[in-house]
Amino acid sequence: DLSVGAIVALSSVWATTVATQEYGFAGILLTAVLVGVGCGLVNGLLVAYGGVVPFIATLAMLASARGLALQITDGRTQIVSVDGVLGLGERDAYVLGVPPLVLVFAVVTVIGWLILNRTTFGRRTVAVGGNAEAARLAGIDVRRQRLYLYLLSGLCCGIAAFLLIILSGSGQNTNGNLYELDAIAAAIIGGTLLSGGRGTITGSVLGVLIFTTITNIFALNNLQSDVQQIAKGAIIVAAVLVQRRTASTT
C-alpha cells in the first residue's frame, strides 16, 4: 500500500478543519478514522473488485489524497484549538509515566497480533498472501479478504493521523511524508515477505523500532535529509536481498 502516508495527511487535515473542530474531541477522532477507512475502502474496491494492480491503485490514491489534502489546507497549517485533544500530548495525561500515544501503539499491536494469530481472519490472510488461487480453491473469498485488509490499513492510517494531530497540535498536508517508505522498510526488516505468505506482528514492531533507531542515529549525526533517504533505500534493498538469500537456502 503506497498510499498510507498520503491517507494520514488527508485524514489529519480533514479532521482539523474549523468545521470539524466545532464538534470537539469526538469530531476530530471520528473524522480522522472515517477518512482513513474511506480511503481504504476505495483502495480495496479498486484492487479486489476492480482488478486494478495494487501498485497502481494505491499510487493513484497517494497522488489524489495528497492533492486533496493540499486543496483543503491551501498550503497552510491548521492549528488545533480543542483542549481535549491538545491535553493528550501533555505530561499530565501520561499513565504511569507512559504517554497515551505509546499506549495506543501497544493496544493496536496487541489487537493486531490476536487477529493475525488467533482468528480465522488471520489464517485466511496468510493463506491469501501465500497463494491466492489455492486459498480460493479452499473456499476463501479472496476478494472480500483483500477488501477487509485495505479497510484495516485505512483504519490504522486514521488512527496514526489522530496521533499526529495530538503530537503536533495541528493538521498539515505534509504529514505522513514518505511514511510508505518507512512502513515498507519496517515490514521487510521485520521479516515480512514481499511475495506474501509470511510475516508477524512482532517482527513488524521490531522492524519499526530498528528502523526508527537508525533514523535517529542519522539525525544525531546531522546527516542531510537526502542522504537519509538514500540510506533508507539502501537498507530496504539490503533487507530484500537477505530475504531472498535466506529463502533460497531453506
Rank of each mutant, 00 (worst) to 15 (best):
L194G: 00
A6V: 03
T200R: 08
T125G: 14
V104R: 08
A63V: 14
T125V: 11
L88D: 12
G36T: 02
A231M: 15
N117G: 11
Y23A: 13
I166E: 06
S12F: 00
L46F: 13
A134R: 00
G84D: 10
A161H: 08
S248L: 13
F218Y: 13
R198H: 10
A183F: 02
L116Q: 09
A132E: 12
P54E: 01
R118L: 14
V13S: 03
A187P: 11
Q21R: 03
G89S: 10
L163I: 09
Y23E: 06
I189V: 14
V33M: 03
A186Y: 07
L68M: 13
W14G: 15
G139K: 07
D226P: 02
G197I: 02
L194A: 01
W14P: 01
V52R: 02
I115S: 01
A69F: 02
G203V: 11
L164W: 14
F218W: 03
S170P: 01
V205K: 03
G171Y: 05
L181Y: 00
L103I: 15
L149P: 01
L29Y: 12
A57H: 08
V18F: 13
V53Y: 13
T250Q: 14
T77A: 10
A93S: 12
G203P: 05
L167Y: 13
N216T: 12
G130I: 08
G27C: 12
A247D: 11
T109A: 15
I230N: 08
L206V: 09
I230F: 12
A15N: 04
A48N: 05
V142W: 11
L178H: 08
V33D: 05
A238E: 07
T246L: 15
L151D: 03
Q172C: 00
I184T: 06
L241N: 06
I115C: 09
G24C: 01
T16I: 12
R91T: 10
A60F: 04
V35G: 04
A127V: 02
F121T: 15
C156Y: 10
A48L: 03
T192P: 08
I28K: 02
A135Q: 05
Y94E: 11
G190W: 08
N175T: 05
N221H: 13
G158R: 02
I7W: 01
I189E: 07
P100N: 06
F162G: 04
R198L: 12
I236V: 15
E22F: 09
A132N: 00
A65Y: 09
